[in-house]
């Protein structure tokens, strides 16, 4: 079923929430308040939001180092998300994971990942479990174009195709793998790789949230009826550097200006304006989203730093009656 304009409003709101949340993180990072590495997904929000629009809580997703949007779109709590990235005790991972490991298994968010490509084997296993349970759920994995050069993609394409496992492979092709362009990383294309394993493939404009959602809807419905893998390649744009603080001297001005023209949020906004929504509607929505973020961020900042008594907790599962 194609996405209706009423749901475009919902998708727009989600994209905006991710954008504003990451813009706040960007500022916090610049002020020295975010420890570690920070990879922002600004410019890529339409992928996470479009894909998640067709997933339920019993469907699983696995993500990569650029996973803030994936987590929020799957429904990770905003305050728990901020607290985690700030390294606080009330973070979704109690401050032990950080930006690259945001997870909430209770809603099927199996984790961002610090290892390029590592989400694919995990998702393959999750899909096998879901298929064994037989309730028509699917497992999606987000990865970048850089992950196409990792060996595990071969193993995972092969196994999911051979065993007809319901994995939705979602490639966010932003043209960059750290500081190197994709064409210097891969001797083939994702389309040809998919074809080699007999996996249905679609390429979409990853900055058009409706296009992503429509394609995901089509694929996921097929997968629920008859488990088997699918690949969606989303052409998208990494508006920020590889990480915050990246001087990006390897990129040129043309690319930068092309990216602002392709901004997924600006595009959805013009679509909604064309459909008759007023500036006032947008103002209200922005105010609402900002205050939601203010509340969550306040909670997160109020959370204490984890204390060293939790240092070795949770390495293993405590067992009653077993020492």
């Amino acid at each position: 079923m194609p996405i209706k304009s009423s749901s475009l409003q919902v998708l727009y709101r989600q994209m905006l929430l991710i954008r504003r949340a990451e813009e706040r993180l960007q500022k916090l990072f610049a002020d020295g308040d975010v420890p570690g590495f920070l990879h922002l997904s600004i410019g890529q929000e339409a992928v996470a939001v479009g894909i998640s629009s067709v997933l339920g809580v019993a469907d699983t997703v696995s993500s990569n180092h650029r996973g803030h949007g994936h987590a929020l779109a799957k429904g990770v709590s905003l305050s728990g998300f901020f607290a985690e990235i700030l390294g606080r005790a009330d973070g979704v991972c109690r401050g032990r994971g950080g930006s690259m490991h945001v997870a909430d298994l209770s809603i099927g968010m199996l984790g961002a990942n610090g290892i390029v490509g590592a989400g694919m084997p995990i998702t393959t296993g999750s899909a096998l479990a879901l298929k064994m349970k037989g309730a028509g759920n699917i497992a999606a994995v987000y990865f970048g174009d850089g992950a196409l050069a990792e060996g595990v993609i071969h193993e995972c394409f092969n196994l999911t195709s051979l065993w007809s496992l319901p994995v939705l492979f979602v490639c966010e092709n932003n043209g960059w793998s750290e500081f190197s362009p994709t064409e210097r990383q891969l001797a083939t294309s994702l389309e040809r790789l998919s074809a080699a394993f007999g996996i249905a493939f679609a390429s979409v404009d990853g900055n058009d949230v409706v296009a992503v959602a429509d394609q995901a809807d089509k694929f996921v419905n097929q997968m629920r009826d008859m488990p088997s893998p699918r690949v969606i390649e989303c052409q998208t744009t990494r508006i920020r550097g590889h990480f915050e603080g990246d001087p990006q001297d390897y990129r040129n001005k043309e690319e930068m200006s092309m990216m602002s023209e392709r901004d997924p949020i600006a595009r959805a906004r013009s679509q909604l304006l064309a459909e008759g929504l007023s500036d006032v509607w947008f103002e209200q929505l922005h105010a609402e989203v900002d205050s939601e973020i203010d509340v969550a961020l306040k909670l997160a900042k109020g959370s204490p730093e984890p204390t060293s008594d939790s240092l070795v907790a949770d390495v293993y599962t405590p067992r009653l009656g077993v020492s």
Partner: peptide
């Protein structure tokens, strides 16, 4: 065959299947 799987020669995904399936409620 729904409980005993002959995997291809692919150790990374064999281990990955164990991880992902364990995260999704199985005991591989």
């Amino acid at each position: 065959p729904g409980r005993v799987y002959d995997a291809p020669i692919a150790e990374a995904v064999i281990a990955g299947v164990a991880v992902g399936a364990a995260m999704t409620g199985m005991r591989p």
